[in-house]
Design a protein around this nucleic acid. Structure first.
Length: 489
RNA sequence: GCAGCUGUAGCUCAGUUGGUUAGAGCGCUGGAUUGUGGAUCCAGAGGUCGGUGGUUCGACCCCACCCAGCUGUACCA
């Protein structure tokens, strides 16, 4: 094809999306498999739903407008109906449950993993496509269902190699928060602003939250954000409520009851306290300690659909970003109770609770500590006998190794370049000389690279034939295995 | 959305107070080596200087607008 230079498309990735290579794929696969095993062992069963749903089923039509919310990627079907890419796994679950309600066991407990898409501005570590791993229980109002999710999240994080103290799973109740706002005489119209300010505690600190509860706050770029404009006694009351979170006391759960003020005197405050207490106490009795599962009054989550308990898991160790700076790493999992979601379809209230692990985020944090890699690769170079190369590769594969025969058309030197670029461990060479002698040459590419650092002159480079050995063709598998072992691949 | 910063080769960047054929390193391709990657040397390809308009004898450089990217912030199921 011939293209006019000006009409050629620019090869570029849409913003906020990314390509992923073998190392990350391997790491994610391992992570997903680990979580999956934990969730299945708890008796949750898998479910898959499509990436596209009708926009109205996702609940993302703009009010009054015949057009989807901008935050979702949408397209119009042939028949004029709007479809959207799912922005989480919970809305499709609600649709699925509503559609199959009769046939499902109640409580219905399922896990689901998949990509979700959000049409938002991407930032460092925030993409427009990412992977979530969800577990939800539909049809149980019991705190046992919430406790189970908290405990199972701990198990999953530990199965992924996190140690005690490297993570916390936090719980709060929106009912309790609402009761406190009421006790502080905060107008309902300011509820959203106040909650959002509290939610930013971990990122902006107490002073940031105080500014946002008051007049407002100016950020690093000089932009100004208006605050809730509360009276100072109201501000102090809210700050006192979230104090256990600020001071990071280890026994936050016990501190709850002292700081909830008159909140407990209202029904809603009582209820909020109870749902936290009951769930956390179940976890305690099951052996989950206060540094694993705890109450944190500053956990808020999204405003739209959570009705009571909210959950959030965080890492407690420092995480470096791409630039090598230590950053505050936000939550790696979040969720809560959403008792109204199924009712959107059926009109019936169905209690539901769930938690979602942000796999992409968790992966980027954990991968800095242990890099998963594919197993070492053996590449059989091809001189003049493709079938022979394939035969050797097959022998190696049958011995459980990862092996490929070179299928390009380039000359020998270039084949080695290829093997080098692929990061192969060993190149297998069988030319005319070897074949006549029933031998093969094995080249240890990693060791060869190390040895080459000492080479100074062209003559020396030409003369060297290091890090390789010629062995009997019959002993191919044994010799390759031995070389891999020696190189500690 | 708001604010700040930045757009020069595939990548990272240099480019003097506005001056004629826009450079470097890395990468890429070829060669030194028709059976040796990784070292070294030689040669080569690769650019509408983000776009449009303006100022000027003359613009990569100055001005305006637009676009894109980055960072912060807002929103975030």
């Amino acid at each position: 094809m011939r293209t006019d230079k000006t009409s050629r498309p620019k090869a570029r990735l849409p913003r906020g999306l990314r390509d992923r290579g073998p190392a990350e794929i391997a790491a994610e696969r391992r992570m997903l498999e680990t979580i999956r095993q934990v969730y299945e062992s708890w008796g949750f069963e898998p479910l898959e739903t499509p990436a596209l749903e009708y926009t109205d089923a996702l609940g993302k039509f703009l009010p009054d407008l015949d057009r989807p919310n901008e935050g979702v990627f949408s397209l119009k079907d042939d028949d004029g109906q709007w479809l959207s890419l799912r922005y989480d796994l919970t809305a499709p679950l609600a649709r699925y449950v509503a559609e199959n309600f009769q046939n499902l066991p109640k409580p219905f407990r399922r896990y689901q993993v998949g990509q979700v898409w959000r049409n938002e501005k991407p930032g460092p570590g925030r993409y427009r496509e990412f992977t979530q791993f969800d577990a939800d229980t539909i049809g149980s109002a019991s705190p046992a269902a919430d406790a189970e999710l908290l405990m199972m999240t701990c198990d999953a994080l530990e199965a992924l190699g996190l140690k005690r103290g490297e993570y916390v799973v936090k719980m709060n109740s929106r009912r309790l928060v609402d009761a406190v706002l009421e006790a502080a005489n905060i107008e309902p119209s300011k509820r959203g602003v106040v909650l959002r300010a509290v939610d930013k505690l971990d990122r902006l600190g107490v002073d940031g939250v105080r500014s946002l509860l008051g007049k407002g706050r100016k950020d690093e770029s000089g932009d100004f954000t208006r605050g809730a404009d509360l009276a100072s006694d109201q501000i102090e009351l809210v700050l006192a409520f979230i104090q256990p979170s600020i001071s990071a006391v280890s026994s936050r759960f016990d501190a709850t009851w002292d700081v909830a003020f008159g909140a407990s005197s209202t029904d809603i405050g009582e209820q909020g306290q109870a749902e936290i207490r009951d769930a956390v106490q179940i976890a305690r009795k099951c052996g989950y300690s206060g540094d694993q599962i705890l109450y944190d009054p500053a956990v808020i989550r999204g405003l739209e659909y959570y009705t009571g308990p909210v959950f959030e898991a965080q890492l407690t160790f420092p995480v470096a970003n791409e630039a090598g700076e230590t950053i505050i790493f936000g939550s790696v999992a979040g969720g809560g109770r959403y008792d109204d979601l199924v009712a959107r379809f059926t009109g019936q209230q169905v209690p539901a609770t769930g938690i979602s692990i942000g796999v992409s985020r968790l992966l980027s944090a954990v991968r800095q500590r242990s890099d998963a890699a594919l197993s070492p690769l053996v590449i059989v170079l091809t001189m003049d006998d493709s079938a022979g190369s394939f035969a050797m590769a097959r022998e190696l594969r049958e011995a459980g190794l990862r092996a490929e025969a070179y299928v390009g058309t380039r000359k020998f030197g270039d084949q080695l370049k290829y093997a080098d670029k692929r990061g192969a461990a060993i190149a297998v060479i069988e030319g005319a000389d070897e074949r006549a002698a029933k031998k093969v040459t094995l080249k240890d590419l990693k060791r060869g690279a190390e040895l080459s650092k000492a080479i100074e002159s062209r003559e020396q480079w030409l003369g060297e034939r290091q890090a390789q050995a010629t062995v009997d063709r019959e002993r191919l598998v044994q010799e390759v295995s031995a070389m891999l072992k020696r190189g500690r691949w």
